[in-house]
């Protein structure tokens, strides 16, 4: 990472004008320290979410009801690992190391999406995650494909392309249950009941309370407000629930014919902040699992380096 020229009002003004005119920023270009910092925070948290997000669904791989469902679920969880990698790589171009990011996740200073702190109690939860959680993620991520920071935008494009299969397999799974026996239908409805509100909260606090929003909009890191994206998700999902024959668990849900939008009842933000602050149903379990996986992998990482060094030494010896 080359040393950056110091911040000054002229440079800052030129940068702001460049991104405001939809200009892109690449790793070696000058950028304000705050732009770099906010991107590192956002991209690494996004990466952590992909990695932690493997756990709730990974929980069901060994118990998938058919080989078809099992290979689909394995492919999906493998995709999440890949998405984590694309994002960590994008963050690394900003001068932060993979180890630093990993450490911040493991010591709890970096956050990840709160949605993954909810448990997957039944097989229907795998469907609900694909349909609702990945559905919400796609809505969040599509605008980021046009983010001002090149490596982040490119990672997002790759991710969005792969994400659409995730949502569709989830919907198909829900459909199979919803159109199945009464017990299967009830299981699908129960999963929707538990995942609906957490999915709605995935878009973050309401516009007035979102701390990073304004500057991120100006810098073209964020392109649409939390509430705008949430509305899009609600409108889209209400119709999909109808197709499934499932009921959205919100007695206040109503269609506003003036605006053409579905309106939801009040969101329980206390629950959201409780989970963000580490007191959700699975926060401790997710972190403990991640820490164990990291520690259990130490010998593998060390062995790979030792093996590579040995191979190199052998090649050098042969050449001599």
């Amino acid at each position: 990472m080359p040393a950056r020229e110091p911040d000054c009002p002229e440079r800052r003004a030129a940068f702001d004008a460049h991104v405001a005119a939809e200009g892109k920023v690449e790793p070696r270009d000058w950028m304000p320290a705050a732009y770099q910092k906010t991107l590192i925070r956002q991209i690494s948290q996004h990466a952590h979410s992909e990695i932690i997000g493997m756990q709730p669904e990974g929980n069901w791989i060994s118990r998938a009801p058919s080989l078809r469902r099992k290979v689909i679920l394995m492919a999906k969880v493998q995709d999440e690992a890949g998405h984590g990698l694309y994002l960590y790589s994008a963050a690394e171009t900003l001068g932060v190391s993979r180890d630093e990011m990993e450490e911040k996740l493991l010591d709890g200073t970096a956050k990840y999406s709160s949605i993954f702190n909810y448990p997957t109690l039944t097989w229907a939860d795998v469907g609900a995650i694909g349909w609702l959680v990945d559905g919400a993620a796609i809505i969040n991520q599509i605008p980021i494909c046009r983010c001002s920071y090149g490596p982040y935008a490119r990672a997002m494009m790759r991710i969005c392309k792969e994400e659409s299969f995730h949502q569709r397999q989830g919907f198909e799974l829900m459909m199979a249950l919803a159109k199945g026996t009464q017990a299967q239908h009830a299981m699908a409805q129960d999963a929707l009941n538990r995942w609906w509100w957490p999915a709605v909260m995935m878009f973050g606090p309401p516009d007035g309370e979102s701390v990073h929003s304004r500057q991120n909009m100006a810098w073209r890191i964020k392109r649409k407000s939390n509430d705008e994206l949430r509305q899009k998700f609600v409108d889209m999902t209400v119709k999909q629930a109808e197709a499934l024959g499932l009921e959205i668990p919100d007695p206040d849900l109503s269609f506003n014919s003036d605006t053409g939008h579905w309106e939801i009842g009040p969101i329980d933000w206390d629950e959201f902040w409780t989970v963000v602050k580490g007191h959700g149903p699975c926060n401790r379990q997710r972190m403990a699992h991640r820490r164990n996986a990291h520690e259990d992998g130490v010998w593998v990482r060390e062995a790979a380096v030792a093996f590579a060094a040995k191979q190199r030494a052998r090649t050098t010896q042969q050449a001599a």
């Binding site: 990698l85 694309y86 790589s89 690394e92 993979r98 490119r154 990672a155 790759r158 990482r301 790979a304 380096v305 093996f307 590579a308 191979q311 190199r312």
Partner: peptide, 11 residues
């Protein structure tokens, strides 16, 4: 296409 960490070129 992107980048990744690996112990050596083969990996």
């Amino acid at each position: 296409a992107g980048s990744l960490h690996a112990a050596d070129a083969k990996m």
